[in-house]
């Protein structure tokens, strides 16, 4: 059970939600990563950078989750 009745909750607003913007925008800016050099383990930059953006996405969403999850007495 949640502590406050739903009518009184503030909704989903939180300044942490702004962190969701970078992982949406950066992977779509092709001019940032459409290059061959520098290579990493033989991978052109185009490929390893985009795989690295996955980590960016995980970090941003994890932080938002941790900072906005509801405190629950059951857990």
């Amino acid at each position: 059970m949640s502590d406050t009745p739903p009518e009184e909750r503030a909704g989903d607003r939180s300044p942490w939600n702004w962190l969701l913007i970078p992982p949406i925008v950066i992977p779509l800016l092709t001019f940032l990563f459409n290059f061959d050099e520098p290579r990493l383990l033989g991978f052109p930059a185009f490929y390893w950078l985009q795989l690295a953006f996955i980590v960016l996405g995980v970090i941003c969403t994890s932080v938002v989750y941790q900072m906005t999850k509801r405190k629950r007495s059951a857990e």
């Binding site: 969701l20 992982p23 949406i24 992977p27 185009f46 985009q50 960016l56 969403t61």
Partner: peptide, 24 residues
């Protein structure tokens, strides 16, 4: 080639994008 790699940015941007939408 590179065009087929669109699946990666596609599946990165999706989660932050729907994060707040899906809980609603």
């Amino acid at each position: 080639g590179a065009l087929g790699f669109y699946a990666v940015p596609y599946t990165i941007v999706i989660y932050p994008m729907v994060f707040l939408v899906l809980i609603r």
